[in-house]
């Protein structure tokens, strides 16, 4: 099998663009949330300062091998998700490592980081971390169910497991988007999307600045910086999947930036309006409202 070596620098370029876009977008989204609360919010470059500071902390302690590997798994989950899916449709430079069965791999990568994080945080031995993992895994599992069902529906609809083919089938007019050809699947997936973006009402797992901060309680300095890097990549990578599956993909970077921003804003709009759910409430919500829609989507396809 011949491997196209040029793919590697091109993938790194994609990664570079996405990391920077993710850092700025995250700060921008936080600013929007702050404006809703009548605050000014963080400066737009705050995430860079936080990241450099965390990398520059001189001392760090470890709790064992898995404690090291937790953030690494988390980051590789985000990077893997991004690199095995075509970022820009039809572009040789930015189609990355996508291949025929990448939809299944993407589904796996969505969960991979969470699992790695769970193992790492468990090794830290902190009770808050253990509670955070229990909450996080239950909520993520419940939120993934409707998404998995929606993905099955879409795969059945287009009779393929390749993200590139799915995007290709949606080209032409925006009426060809899955959003219009299979609205039930998109509804189920978007409800699941709310649960996985770590925005209210589903952010009790990683509630920042509260006593039960969740899995990363013991993480600090470079470990935390790795996880922050992932926080810039993962939401974008996840939105790229949604964009490709349901919203017709993107054929150029400006379209990509616009679509990613709009899809992100859905979770932000919901987040600033609704208060937090407790974990058992959110699981019940997913099972009652999102999963039946997903099942219906699979049945009707």
């Amino acid at each position: 099998m011949d491997f196209d070596w040029m793919k590697i620098p091109y993938s790194l370029l994609t990664l570079f663009i996405v990391v920077n876009y993710g850092m700025i977008l995250n700060a921008f989204i936080q600013k929007i949330g702050a404006r809703v609360g009548r605050r000014h919010g963080i400066p737009i470059w705050q995430n860079y300062a936080d990241l450099i500071k965390n990398y520059s902390i001189r001392s760090s302690i470890t709790h064992g091998v898995m404690f090291y590997l937790g953030p690494v798994f988390r980051l590789s989950g985000g990077v893997g998700l991004l690199l095995f899916v075509p970022t820009i449709y039809g572009s040789y430079m930015f189609s990355n490592m996508s291949f025929a069965g990448d939809l299944i791999l993407a589904l796996y990568f969505v969960f991979f980081g969470t699992l790695g994080m769970a193992l790492g945080a468990a090794e830290s031995g902190h009770p808050h971390a253990a509670i955070g993992i229990t909450r996080g895994l239950s909520q993520v599992t419940a939120a993934e169910l409707p998404f998995a069902l929606a993905v099955f529906a879409v795969a059945l609809q287009y009779q393929t497991l390749s993200v590139t083919d799915i995007v290709a089938a949606q080209q032409g007019s925006f009426l060809n988007w899955t959003l219009f050809t299979n609205p039930l699947a998109v509804t189920a997936a978007m409800l699941s999307f709310l649960g996985s973006m770590m925005r209210p009402p589903f952010d009790v797992v990683l509630a920042p600045q509260e006593i039960p901060i969740g899995p990363p309680t013991e993480y600090h300095s470079s470990y935390l910086a790795l996880m922050q890097t992932n926080r810039a990549i993962f939401p974008i990578a996840k939105i790229v999947i949604y964009m490709n599956l349901f919203f017709g993909g993107a054929a150029s970077w400006p379209v990509f930036f616009l679509k990613v921003f709009c899809i992100y804003m859905i979770s932000v709009l919901v987040g600033v309006v609704f208060p937090r759910f407790r974990v058992e409430q959110s699981i019940r919500w997913f099972l009652i409202w999102a999963v039946p829609v997903g099942i219906l989507a699979v049945v009707l396809v």
Binding site: A34, H40, G41, I42, P43, A49, Q209
Partner: peptide, 10 residues
């Protein structure tokens, strides 16, 4: 927050 000050629980 606009001055880069945040609170962390840990």
């Amino acid at each position: 927050y606009r001055y880069g000050v945040q609170w962390r629980p840990t």
